[in-house]
Nucleic acid binder design. Structure first.
Lengths: 196, 196
DNA sequence: CTTTGAAATGAACGCTTGTTCAGATATCCA
DNA sequence: TGGATATCTGAACAAGCGTTCATTTCAAAG
């Protein structure tokens, strides 16, 4: 696969990350070789080491960047209103963000076991930071009896699993529009949380 | 890892499957070598080929067996009652069955991409057979207005994702008993389906 | 006690792996 | 134009891969 003509060296770095992302998502970290990534970029394997110290770091950076972008994007969402509004905003945000990045999401969920322990700890913390955002919404709603959830942590995990699950079946141009999917999931989440 | 003393050759086959299951679940199919599996069993790599034609078939058989057991076990559940009862039975069954087999479930969900196309097709069909069981419950309930679901297929996927998600966080001996988890999930599923 | 046949070994096959590095090449600034 | 600097090649390294197979081991059957 030849490189785009006219491409200068300073854009090879992003190309490497892009190629690694697609290949890791498709075949899995362990099943993809540095030579495959290099071929996708249009370069020899040795050249990759100008852009990453090793294969593991390549994976780690992809996952870290993804989760940091997730937290940043969530922080930029409107955060006014009561728990019910915030739950709806969260659900819609989660679906939108995840459907926009199927490869990143797939890697972040499937390649945790491919991370060396120190890297795993970093990623796990970031993921937990995000989960706590939903947890605090449910907790606030529980406090003022807007929601009926017997166990807040369990509800957090259940709702996130349900929302993230959309990535496993949704395909662009399918039977349902993204907006319709967002709306339906929103309703299910609200009801699962026992919202009035 | 030495074999249990007194073990005869006729039980090595199951041991191989067991070892492969644990290792595939922990590190992923591509990351596990035949030599690692053999070491776990207490045998040399060549001996594995008395029990499986190749590595791919080993994976395929694990997944196929898991899904067939899932379908068989579900068929053995009581299937009387209305959609509401059947939804509750399904939810409890799904959680119970999946929590009992964390390794199998992990492999069945994570290693789809490691299957060669023909094998993938077989597994995908089995999985779909199972999803259709829930779909028909929701469909029946929708027909007699016991459930309020704007889209049955979407609700099917959402509920299964939510239920299967329990495997990602539940740990034996944790804060919540299995029965309590079952009950809470049951309620969330009922409400998500819009059951009266 | 010998024969048989399954079970397991251990070496070997050709190939791929992640990573390194001396050398070639291209690009940019003076 | 010339020299410095960033970029990339291509070969090499040791190690590991899935798989095969002639040979050995060993318990049970005759």
């Amino acid at each position: 696969m030849a490189r785009k003509t006219g491409s200068h060296a300073e854009i090879t770095g992003p190309l490497v990350r892009q190629a690694a992302q697609r290949l890791f998502a498709q075949h899995g970290y362990a099943a993809v070789s540095m030579r495959q990534i290099a071929a996708e970029v249009g370069v020899q394997a040795g050249a990759l080491y100008l852009y990453t110290p090793d294969k593991q770091t390549l994976l780690f950076d992809l996952m870290k960047t993804h989760l940091e972008e997730l937290l940043t994007a969530w922080a930029a969402e409107p955060n006014g209103g009561g728990p019910q509004d915030r739950l709806e905003i969260f659900a819609r945000f989660h679906i939108r963000f995840h459907l926009d990045r199927p490869d990143e999401v797939f890697i972040a969920y499937m390649e945790l076991r491919s991370l060396e322990p120190e890297n795993f700890a970093v990623i796990e913390r970031l993921r937990h930071d995000y989960e706590r955002e939903l947890e605090s919404i449910l907790s606030d709603g529980h406090a003022i009896q807007s929601f009926r959830v017997p166990d807040i942590k369990l509800a957090t995990m259940a709702i996130i699993a349900m929302l993230t699950g959309v990535n496993t079946w949704y395909r662009e141009g399918g039977r349902l529009s993204r907006d319709r999917v967002e709306r339906i999931y929103c309703n299910m989440v609200r009801r699962a949380a026992g919202a009035g």
